[in-house]
Design a protein around this nucleic acid. Structure first.
Lengths: 157, 157
DNA sequence: GAATCACTACTCGGATAGGGTGTGTCCGAGTATACATGG
DNA sequence: CCATGTATACTCGGACACACCCTATCCGAGTAGTGATTC
């Protein structure tokens, strides 16, 4: 899985802790975790296209969350970065070569593809059920001082 | 996900239908679905290393299943081809840059990584629960004539 | 003094190179078969 | 005729190129602020 997913998730949480009052630039979000600024910008663009964050150009510009954390699921972020394609894609090799049966015999779906799709569905269901607010809550329970530290750092120079 | 997974799964089912009496060469398995023989051979090697299939060299050589289908899970095949690494790997960017808190503050796991790992666990659990024999049964119910057709083709020239 | 306008500085957005992993191919190591040879 | 040794053909196994996508970077489009200019 793309590394950008991890960056996007952390950045969303940071944006939430900073608050929606002012926009934060990609460069600043990147500096906070020592990430390449231009590349993080690319990931944030993807989040923007997906409607997860809003963006404004120019001075005082930057990114901010487009909706509250409890309305953003892990699935939303993963889909925004990785795309909507399934990990396992059936290429219907059963219909290729001498192994292909009579035409029209393949009305039923490939049993292998179905089994793989079912497993992937379980994964997606789990991701869709967990919102970023759940993650935030757990993170704050583990490190209660983190939100303040983050807010202060981003408020400073 | 690697395309080899699909090939490996179909090949395992084909091997089961052919029967354990004689070994089948990678070239023949590949020809059945019009796949590049040398590359399918590579995937079968991975299955061999994982102990899913057995291999013998020389004339009359080839591959055959190392154990019955009901003792081979989808997870086994995926792990054999893709490797044991998790799809989402946490690089602990929360400990990088100015955002890093005091040393020793990170005894608890990253909440993001935990949530992603839980989803992936659901996926793995589903794959581990489904055996190739389940898939075979469903496939035979959808196309009852397929096993005979496969057996005949591999028996022929 | 206030309004208008041009200028500047700053940020996102997409277009542009580089590297690593999957994809595809090739040749050598090893073995069962077939055949020639000798008893 | 039977046993033995040898040559041979065939297959797996790993080493070797190629391609595509992720990673990383740069420059242009657009905007808010600032200052000068004019009424």
């Amino acid at each position: 899985m793309s590394e950008g997913v991890e960056w996007a998730l952390h950045s969303c949480l940071n944006l939430a802790w900073i608050g929606p009052e002012r926009a934060v630039t990609a460069a600043r979000l990147a500096a906070y975790h020592d990430l390449p600024a231009a590349y993080l910008n690319k990931q944030l663009q993807a989040l923007s296209r997906a409607g997860i964050v809003g963006s404004v150009s120019g001075p005082k510009g930057g990114f901010r969350l487009a909706r509250p954390l409890d309305r953003i699921s892990l699935m939303d972020v993963v889909t925004a970065i990785e795309g909507p394609e399934e990990a396992f894609r059936c290429t219907e090799i059963r219909q290729q070569g001498p192994g292909a049966g009579p035409a029209g015999a393949y009305t039923a779906g490939c049993a292998i593809a179905e089994a793989m799709a079912k497993a992937e569905l379980a994964w997606r269901r789990e991701l869709a059920a967990r919102t970023l607010d759940d993650v935030r809550e757990r993170a704050e329970r583990q490190a209660p001082e983190a939100p303040d530290r983050i807010r202060r750092w981003f408020a400073g120079a």
